[in-house]
Design a protein around this nucleic acid. Structure first.
Length: 231
DNA sequence: CACCAGGCAAGTA
DNA sequence: TACTTGCATGGT
Protein backbone atom coordinates (compact mmCIF):
# COMPACT_ATOMS: atom_id res chain seq x y z
CA UNK A 1 0.00 0.00 0.00
CA UNK A 2 1.52 3.29 -1.00
CA UNK A 3 0.20 5.26 1.97
CA UNK A 4 2.25 2.92 4.16
CA UNK A 5 5.40 3.93 2.36
CA UNK A 6 4.51 7.60 2.78
CA UNK A 7 4.08 7.11 6.50
CA UNK A 8 7.38 5.30 6.75
CA UNK A 9 9.12 8.10 4.90
CA UNK A 10 7.52 10.79 6.97
CA UNK A 11 8.33 9.08 10.27
CA UNK A 12 11.95 8.75 9.25
CA UNK A 13 12.03 12.36 8.14
CA UNK A 14 10.67 13.47 11.52
CA UNK A 15 13.39 11.40 13.18
CA UNK A 16 16.12 12.82 10.97
CA UNK A 17 15.02 16.39 11.61
CA UNK A 18 14.91 15.95 15.37
CA UNK A 19 18.23 14.12 15.39
CA UNK A 20 19.91 16.80 13.28
CA UNK A 21 18.62 19.45 15.67
CA UNK A 22 19.36 17.78 19.00
CA UNK A 23 21.80 14.94 18.30
CA UNK A 24 21.88 11.80 20.41
CA UNK A 25 19.99 12.05 23.72
CA UNK A 26 21.87 9.16 25.38
CA UNK A 27 18.79 7.72 27.09
CA UNK A 28 17.94 6.39 29.65
CA UNK A 29 19.92 8.62 32.03
CA UNK A 30 20.64 5.94 34.66
CA UNK A 31 23.52 3.75 35.78
CA UNK A 32 21.71 0.43 36.12
CA UNK A 33 18.65 -1.54 35.08
CA UNK A 34 17.16 -1.09 38.52
CA UNK A 35 17.72 2.65 38.43
CA UNK A 36 15.79 2.83 35.16
CA UNK A 37 12.88 1.02 36.78
CA UNK A 38 12.85 3.33 39.80
CA UNK A 39 13.12 6.38 37.56
CA UNK A 40 10.26 5.18 35.36
CA UNK A 41 7.92 5.24 38.37
CA UNK A 42 9.24 8.49 39.81
CA UNK A 43 8.97 10.42 36.55
CA UNK A 44 5.23 9.82 36.15
CA UNK A 45 3.75 13.27 35.45
CA UNK A 46 6.86 14.80 37.00
CA UNK A 47 9.75 16.92 35.74
CA UNK A 48 12.95 14.87 35.44
CA UNK A 49 14.97 17.40 37.47
CA UNK A 50 12.83 16.51 40.49
CA UNK A 51 13.32 12.80 39.86
CA UNK A 52 17.09 13.27 39.88
CA UNK A 53 16.91 14.73 43.37
CA UNK A 54 14.83 11.83 44.59
CA UNK A 55 17.20 9.25 43.10
CA UNK A 56 20.16 11.12 44.53
CA UNK A 57 18.57 10.92 47.97
CA UNK A 58 18.08 7.17 47.60
CA UNK A 59 21.69 6.70 46.50
CA UNK A 60 23.04 8.92 49.29
CA UNK A 61 21.19 6.75 51.80
CA UNK A 62 22.64 3.61 50.19
CA UNK A 63 19.19 2.35 49.28
CA UNK A 64 19.47 1.84 45.52
CA UNK A 65 19.15 -1.92 45.42
CA UNK A 66 16.25 -4.33 45.40
CA UNK A 67 17.16 -5.95 48.68
CA UNK A 68 17.72 -2.68 50.50
CA UNK A 69 14.53 -1.03 49.29
CA UNK A 70 12.52 -4.17 49.98
CA UNK A 71 13.09 -3.73 53.72
CA UNK A 72 13.00 0.06 53.93
CA UNK A 73 9.96 1.38 55.85
CA UNK A 74 7.46 3.26 53.74
CA UNK A 75 7.89 6.50 55.68
CA UNK A 76 11.66 6.43 55.14
CA UNK A 77 11.36 5.83 51.41
CA UNK A 78 8.68 8.50 51.12
CA UNK A 79 11.07 10.98 52.74
CA UNK A 80 13.81 10.16 50.21
CA UNK A 81 11.57 10.56 47.16
CA UNK A 82 9.74 13.62 48.44
CA UNK A 83 11.22 15.98 45.76
CA UNK A 84 9.67 13.97 42.94
CA UNK A 85 6.14 14.64 44.14
CA UNK A 86 3.24 12.26 44.86
CA UNK A 87 5.61 10.69 47.38
CA UNK A 88 3.04 8.58 49.21
CA UNK A 89 1.51 7.03 46.11
CA UNK A 90 4.91 6.58 44.49
CA UNK A 91 6.21 4.84 47.59
CA UNK A 92 3.36 2.37 47.24
CA UNK A 93 4.13 1.94 43.52
CA UNK A 94 7.86 1.39 44.10
CA UNK A 95 7.10 -1.18 46.79
CA UNK A 96 4.67 -2.93 44.47
CA UNK A 97 7.18 -3.48 41.67
CA UNK A 98 9.96 -4.36 44.10
CA UNK A 99 7.75 -7.00 45.72
CA UNK A 100 6.89 -8.32 42.27
CA UNK A 101 10.55 -8.63 41.26
CA UNK A 102 11.42 -10.38 44.51
CA UNK A 103 8.51 -12.80 44.50
CA UNK A 104 8.26 -13.58 40.79
CA UNK A 105 11.96 -13.47 39.87
CA UNK A 106 13.69 -13.91 43.23
CA UNK A 107 15.00 -10.37 42.90
CA UNK A 108 16.94 -11.40 39.80
CA UNK A 109 16.67 -8.83 36.99
CA UNK A 110 18.66 -11.07 34.61
CA UNK A 111 15.97 -13.70 34.94
CA UNK A 112 13.29 -11.07 34.43
CA UNK A 113 15.09 -9.78 31.32
CA UNK A 114 14.97 -13.22 29.70
CA UNK A 115 11.16 -13.28 29.62
CA UNK A 116 9.58 -12.66 26.18
CA UNK A 117 8.34 -9.15 25.50
CA UNK A 118 4.61 -9.85 25.36
CA UNK A 119 4.63 -11.96 28.51
CA UNK A 120 6.65 -9.46 30.48
CA UNK A 121 4.49 -6.57 29.31
CA UNK A 122 1.35 -8.27 30.64
CA UNK A 123 3.06 -8.99 33.94
CA UNK A 124 4.16 -5.38 34.31
CA UNK A 125 0.68 -4.07 33.53
CA UNK A 126 -0.71 -6.17 36.36
CA UNK A 127 1.50 -4.43 38.91
CA UNK A 128 -0.02 -1.58 40.91
CA UNK A 129 1.16 1.75 39.53
CA UNK A 130 2.41 0.45 36.16
CA UNK A 131 0.42 1.69 33.18
CA UNK A 132 1.23 1.34 29.50
CA UNK A 133 3.81 4.09 29.23
CA UNK A 134 5.67 3.04 32.35
CA UNK A 135 5.60 -0.62 31.29
CA UNK A 136 6.95 0.20 27.84
CA UNK A 137 9.62 2.53 29.26
CA UNK A 138 10.84 -0.30 31.48
CA UNK A 139 10.71 -2.81 28.61
CA UNK A 140 12.65 -0.57 26.22
CA UNK A 141 15.06 1.28 28.46
CA UNK A 142 15.66 -1.21 31.26
CA UNK A 143 15.39 -4.50 29.34
CA UNK A 144 16.11 -3.35 25.78
CA UNK A 145 13.01 -4.96 24.32
CA UNK A 146 11.83 -3.62 20.92
CA UNK A 147 8.73 -1.63 21.91
CA UNK A 148 7.85 1.98 21.16
CA UNK A 149 7.06 4.27 24.10
CA UNK A 150 4.13 6.67 23.68
CA UNK A 151 3.81 9.66 25.98
CA UNK A 152 1.83 12.90 26.11
CA UNK A 153 4.36 14.64 23.85
CA UNK A 154 4.12 11.88 21.25
CA UNK A 155 0.36 12.32 21.05
CA UNK A 156 0.51 16.12 21.11
CA UNK A 157 3.24 16.55 18.51
CA UNK A 158 1.94 13.98 16.04
CA UNK A 159 -1.67 15.09 16.47
CA UNK A 160 -0.62 18.66 15.67
CA UNK A 161 0.93 17.32 12.48
CA UNK A 162 -2.24 15.34 11.73
CA UNK A 163 -0.56 11.94 11.83
CA UNK A 164 -2.57 10.58 14.76
CA UNK A 165 -5.87 11.61 16.30
CA UNK A 166 -5.84 13.89 19.33
CA UNK A 167 -7.75 11.29 21.26
CA UNK A 168 -6.29 8.16 19.70
CA UNK A 169 -5.74 5.49 22.33
CA UNK A 170 -2.24 4.48 23.39
CA UNK A 171 -2.26 1.20 21.48
CA UNK A 172 -3.26 2.84 18.24
CA UNK A 173 -0.47 5.42 18.38
CA UNK A 174 2.01 2.71 19.31
CA UNK A 175 0.92 0.61 16.32
CA UNK A 176 1.33 3.63 14.04
CA UNK A 177 4.99 3.89 14.97
CA UNK A 178 5.78 0.19 15.25
CA UNK A 179 4.00 -0.62 12.01
CA UNK A 180 5.97 1.98 10.07
CA UNK A 181 9.43 1.73 11.61
CA UNK A 182 11.92 -1.14 11.71
CA UNK A 183 11.79 -3.03 15.04
CA UNK A 184 15.11 -1.68 16.15
CA UNK A 185 15.85 -1.04 19.83
CA UNK A 186 18.40 1.77 19.33
CA UNK A 187 16.00 3.49 16.93
CA UNK A 188 13.04 3.24 19.33
CA UNK A 189 15.28 4.41 22.15
CA UNK A 190 16.51 7.50 20.33
CA UNK A 191 13.17 8.28 18.70
CA UNK A 192 11.22 8.52 21.93
CA UNK A 193 14.01 10.51 23.59
CA UNK A 194 14.01 12.96 20.67
CA UNK A 195 10.23 13.34 20.89
CA UNK A 196 10.50 14.23 24.57
CA UNK A 197 13.27 16.75 23.91
CA UNK A 198 11.34 18.29 21.02
CA UNK A 199 8.21 18.41 23.16
CA UNK A 200 9.93 20.02 26.12
CA UNK A 201 11.60 22.62 23.92
CA UNK A 202 8.93 23.44 21.34
CA UNK A 203 5.63 21.74 22.07
CA UNK A 204 4.39 22.61 25.54
CA UNK A 205 0.80 23.65 26.07
CA UNK A 206 1.71 27.12 24.98
CA UNK A 207 3.32 26.30 21.64
CA UNK A 208 6.64 27.90 20.69
CA UNK A 209 6.80 26.30 17.28
CA UNK A 210 8.69 28.84 15.21
CA UNK A 211 12.08 27.16 15.21
CA UNK A 212 10.86 23.60 15.83
CA UNK A 213 12.74 21.09 13.64
CA UNK A 214 9.39 19.57 12.66
CA UNK A 215 7.86 22.83 11.47
CA UNK A 216 6.37 22.23 8.03
CA UNK A 217 7.87 18.78 7.61
CA UNK A 218 4.60 17.07 6.79
CA UNK A 219 3.18 18.27 3.49
CA UNK A 220 1.46 14.98 2.72
CA UNK A 221 -1.06 14.46 5.52
CA UNK A 222 -1.39 18.10 6.55
CA UNK A 223 -2.24 21.01 4.32
CA UNK A 224 0.39 23.71 4.50
CA UNK A 225 -2.26 26.29 5.20
CA UNK A 226 -3.29 24.47 8.36
CA UNK A 227 -1.41 25.81 11.33
CA UNK A 228 -0.54 23.10 13.79
CA UNK A 229 -0.44 25.68 16.56
CA UNK A 230 -4.22 25.70 16.78
CA UNK A 231 -4.49 22.47 18.78
C1' DC B 1 1.25 34.49 40.84
C1' DA B 2 -0.57 30.58 37.84
C1' DC B 3 0.74 26.87 35.35
C1' DC B 4 2.53 22.34 34.58
C1' DA B 5 5.86 18.24 34.33
C1' DG B 6 8.84 11.83 30.51
C1' DG B 7 0.89 8.99 34.51
C1' DC B 8 -1.97 6.12 37.05
C1' DA B 9 -5.88 4.30 39.69
C1' DA B 10 -10.22 5.01 41.68
C1' DG B 11 -14.56 7.03 41.60
C1' DT B 12 -18.78 8.53 39.07
C1' DA B 13 -22.48 8.41 35.44
C1' DT C 1 -17.34 2.40 28.36
C1' DA C 2 -16.05 7.33 28.99
C1' DC C 3 -15.09 11.12 31.74
C1' DT C 4 -13.40 13.27 36.21
C1' DT C 5 -10.48 13.75 40.24
C1' DG C 6 -6.61 13.15 43.63
C1' DC C 7 -1.95 12.76 44.11
C1' DA C 8 2.57 16.94 45.47
C1' DT C 9 7.07 19.03 44.70
C1' DG C 10 9.79 22.48 42.33
C1' DG C 11 10.93 25.25 38.13
C1' DT C 12 9.37 29.08 34.82
Amino acid sequence: MESHDSRKDILMEAYDRMYQHFGSRHWWPAQSTFEVIIGAILTQNTAWANVEKAIENIKAAGGLSIKRLFDIPDETLAGWIRPSGYFNIKTRRLKAIIHFIVERYEGNLEKMASVPLDTLRKELLNIYGIGEETADSILLYAFEKPIFVVDAYTRRIFARHRLVGEKSPYNEIQRFFMGNLPKNVPLFNEYHALIVETGKTFCRRKPLCYSCPLLGFNSIFMEKSTAHTDL
